[in-house]
């Protein structure tokens, strides 16, 4: 089976919600994505997007940050409150502030306009693969301190209570937990969690680590589990 075909197989039946106020872009992106085999729902404003999402949950959401009315960050936060669906932010420029704010609002990844539809497909596939891998993973249950990670069920317990991690946060935690005490560089984590090459954006890792800490750490400002390793990367402290 060719790679393109397997991608198309994955795409079949996968619903993508694109939130974009520019009708021409929306139409062109829909055309391109549908040509790759995805099913595309459209929303021209944040309000419409939230309505559509509540009516029928999508598999992936693509949100443009610059929206009239409710902006992309707010749409992302609203979706995060009700779902751990993979979210990709689309920024108009390579601006640190927008990117970090988007990731902190709960986005799993971002793309900068104009992007190639093939790149978008690759990102969507990476996000879905990871979500599915964590559903059918083969890792054994890991217990570290009061954390209990069950890759099989996609579940993390802290002191017996279930934590609500997004799929990307979960994958990041499982990756770090696969070898407790080993330092993972940003590049390695970018490749294993997001499927990026060496030139992926390290801020993806940094912001996700920050988000992960707010959930797994008792005191996120002085982490006990997810520890920064001087200049090298991150590790899970056994």
């Amino acid at each position: 089976m060719s790679a393109a075909l397997s991608g198309t197989m994955l795409a079949v039946g996968t619903r993508i919600l694109t939130v974009e106020d520019d009708g021409r872009i929306r139409q062109a992106v829909k055309l391109a994505l549908e040509d790759e085999g995805w099913e595309v729902d459209e929303a021209e404003t944040g309000e419409v997007a939230l309505e559509r999402f509540k009516a029928q949950e999508s598999d992936v959401v693509l949100i443009d940050i610059m929206l009239p009315g409710v902006d992309g960050f707010e749409v992302c936060r609203s979706i995060r409150r009700i779902s751990d669906v993979p979210v990709i932010m689309v920024t108009a420029r390579n601006d640190t502030h927008d990117i970090v704010a988007g990731l902190e609002a709960g986005a799993d990844d971002y793309l900068t306009k104009p992007f190639a539809p093939k790149e978008l497909s690759a990102r969507i596939r990476a996000l879905l693969r990871r979500a599915r891998a964590s559903e059918h993973g083969s890792l054994e249950r890991i217990v570290i301190g009061d954390l209990e990670i069950s890759p099989e069920e996609g579940m993390v317990l802290k002191a017996g209570a279930e934590l609500h991690l997004t799929k990307t946060e979960f994958k990041l935690l499982v990756e770090l937990a696969s070898q407790p005490g080993k330092v993972f560089s940003r590049e390695v984590l970018l490749e294993r969690v997001w499927g990026y090459d060496y030139f992926g954006d390290g801020r993806l890792v940094d912001v996700h680590v920050r988000r992960l800490r707010t959930k797994v750490e008792t005191d996120p400002s002085s982490p006990r589990y997810v520890v920064t390793s001087r200049g090298l990367g991150y590790k899970l402290q056994p």
Partner: peptide, 10 residues
Amino acid sequence: LMTLSASIAV
């Protein structure tokens, strides 16, 4: 450019 890029991909 976004519209162009997506359309050319098609």
